[in-house]
Design a protein around this nucleic acid. Structure first.
Lengths: 124, 124
DNA sequence: CGTCAACATAGAGGGATGTCGAAACAAAAG
DNA sequence: CTTTTGTTTCGACATCCCTCTATGTTGACG
């Protein structure tokens, strides 16, 4: 059920040097931009929030997500697919329903990327 | 020099309840999505990184940013404008040159938004 | 005032993205 | 097997976005 994903955030410890640590090279920027781009849509951000609100190990059925929006079901499915391809969430089918959850540690690693400072004393 | 900005992140303490705290409503999601969308481009992410690497209070001249990309000068200016409208950076003209810096606390608040957990014991 | 350099803005073109309806797929139920 | 329900995929279309060239604005310097 989880086919093509990005493994930008979930590599070792802090993925990249950190946004403020040193200028990103093109490849790092391209990979990270995909994650931020996935969060750069109001619908996807609300979907992420609804799923993440379940806490660690929590799951949400698509049938609970869809009625929260005034959008067609294929559209919601499309946004969930993008979030999954960005490496933010994963899903599993159990019987008739499909459940989504936030990949553990992803949000923390993203936050760490944003806040990691430069090695101190490197104003250039 | 700083006209139209978003004040999503820089409100009080943690702007919104937090991504995992409770499902975002439409307005919150729309505002936050603009910030993530601004970071959802490789060029803008590199620009942010180059500026943020200067540390707290650090500045970068546009004349240093432009030659780092194989893009036209108006394109870089356009991306800087989007980052400024997202409330991530600000700029000031001094003589012939224009200097950009990261608005203080923005990255930390964004990170806090990503990691803030729900009130505990709220699996629904 | 005239000129030059740094940067911003305006407008256009081509590709990416969000949305939909229709159809395909999967699993359960009758 | 047929039907029903939940979900994804497909194809199309409108819109947005990244990039460019051309032009405007601002300040420094003779």
């Amino acid at each position: 059920m989880s086919k093509q994903k990005l493994e930008v955030i979930g590599q070792d410890a802090a993925c990249c040097p950190g946004l403020s640590a040193a200028p990103l090279d093109e490849d790092q920027a391209a990979d990270l931009a995909k994650v931020f781009k996935a969060l750069g849509d109001p619908v996807r951000l609300r979907l992420m929030s609804m799923i993440a609100s379940r806490g660690e190990g929590g799951e949400v059925c698509v049938c609970e997500l869809t009625p929260a929006f005034e959008l067609s079901q294929p559209t919601i499915s499309h946004h969930l697919k993008l979030l999954r391809q960005a490496g933010l969430i994963d899903c599993e089918r159990r019987g008739t329903w499909v459940y989504y959850w936030v990949l553990p540690g992803v949000l923390g690693k993203l936050a760490a990327f944003l806040t990691t400072q430069q090695p101190a004393g490197a104003t250039a």
